[in-house]
Computed example of a mutant assay.
Amino acid sequence: MMRKLKIMMASLLLICAVLVLGTCAFLNRMEFGRNPQGNHYEILKKSPRFIEGEFRNPVPTPLFTDDSTVFSVIVKSIFTPKERLVPDMAVPSVKTDLFSLDPEKDLVIWLGHSSYYVQLAGKRILVDPVFSPYASPFFLFNRAFDGTNVYRAEDIPAIDYLLITHDHWDHLDYPTVMALEPKVKKVVCGLGVGSHFANWGYAASKVLEADWFTGLKNHDGFDIHILPARHFSGRGVMRNRTLWVSFVLQSEKRRIFLSGDTGYGPHLTQIGKLFDGFDLAILENGQYDKRWAFIHMMPEETAKAAVELGAKSVLPAHSGKFAISNHAWDEPFTRLAKASRGKPYRLLTPVIGESVDLDDEKQTFSHWWEPHEPLSGEVCESSGLIEGRTENRSDLE
C-alpha cells in the first residue's frame, strides 16, 4: 500500500514539474517579449505614472467593475452561448496598393481592428499593425474574421514612424513587427514597450519610448505627441510594466488624434482642450463589456468623447476583425452610427483597405456591415466588395 502511495505521489510531482516547466517554456517564447529590467527599469521608476512597481491611470481603473476575475470571464465566455459573434460571410474589403500612393497626399487607410496606415506631411506612419491570423499567444484564439487579413508586411512601403499604443497582442504583433523591421525608420511607443523591441533585435537607436505629454516635436515637418489613455498593459502574467498611450499627429495643415485602447475619462476632454480640437479622431469602438467598462468605451461614450475632443471627423477602431468581447461583431458600428446622429462630426466608415482622403470633406462611405442587396458595379472576387459603392448617409453627417 505504501509503495503504491509513493508511486502515486511521485507521479503527481512529476506531472506538476512537467506542467511548471511547460508553462515556463511557453511564457519564455520570443513572442511574449520582455519586460523592462536593470537600468531600463530604473528609468521607468522616474515617471510619475510609475507607482509601487507598476504604471497606473490617473483615475481609479479596476480591471473589472464587478467581482469578475480573468478566470471567471474566460470560463463564462467558453460556456455562454453567443449570437453573431463572428460574421457569417467574408467581411468586405479592398486592397489599395500602398506603393502607388502619392506620399505627399494626406490620407488614412484602415487595415482592420486598430491597425492604420497614415500619410501626413509627406511621412508614412503605421499604427498598431497586426497582420497575423490570430491576435493571441494561443493558436486558434482570437482568429481574424474571414476577409479581414488583407495586408501582409510585403504590402507595406518604407515606414517613417511605427506607432505602438500598448503591448497587448491585438496591438503589438511579434511576427508583424519582425517582418516590418527592415522597412521601419523609427518606432514610437510608451515607456517600457521598447524592451520588447530590444528583445526582438531592434536597434536601440531605432526606438523612441516616452512618457505622456512628451514626444517628437518640431521634427521632420510635423509633431508626434504621446498622451494619456485609460487602459492597462501586459503580454504575459505581469501587468502594467509598460505604459499605454494615445497619440496626436500634428502637421501645419491638420491634427489627428489616435486614442489607442481607452476607457472613457477626463483625459479626453483635457486633450481636446489642449489641442483645440482635431480634424480627425480615430477612436476605439469595440470589444466593450459592462464588466470592463473602465478600460473600453461603449459606442455611446465614443460619440461623447468625439464631441469633447472637438473632432470634425471620426474613424472607429478596435472592431471588425477580431471577437475579443461577447457583443455581436457588427454591434459597435450600428450603435456608434445611431449615437452619432445629430453630432457635430462626420462619422467615416470605410471598409478595410479603402483610402480616406483627408482633403475631401464630401467623401462618403456605406454602412458596409448592414445586409444589402447587390448593387450594380464590379465585384472584388477576394472580398465580395462592390468597387466604388458609396452611399450618402444623412445620419452620419
Rank of each mutant, 00 (worst) to 15 (best):
L107F: 14
P374S: 03
I352V: 12
N240Q: 02
G33M: 08
L21Q: 12
R241P: 00
V237P: 00
E370P: 03
S93T: 05
T23Y: 13
I125R: 04
F222M: 06
E301S: 14
T262W: 01
T61C: 02
G388N: 11
A158S: 15
F71A: 09
Y134W: 08
D289K: 03
H267Q: 03
L191Y: 01
L19F: 04
E378Y: 10
G260D: 11
F131I: 02
K183V: 03
L27N: 14
H40K: 04
I324R: 04
T69H: 00
A158K: 10
Q270P: 00
I78Q: 13
K4W: 11
V150T: 00
S319Y: 13
A317C: 09
E308D: 11
S47G: 15
N199W: 03
L120Q: 07
V91K: 00
K253F: 12
P344V: 05
H267R: 03
Y151T: 01
P62M: 03
S319G: 04
N199A: 15
K253N: 14
H318Y: 14
R255C: 01
Y202G: 12
T80K: 08
A339I: 08
L280V: 10
R49T: 07
F138T: 15
I74G: 00
V70N: 10
C189K: 01
N57F: 10
E354K: 05
P48T: 14
L208K: 11
V127F: 14
S340I: 10
A311E: 03
W110Q: 08
R124W: 05
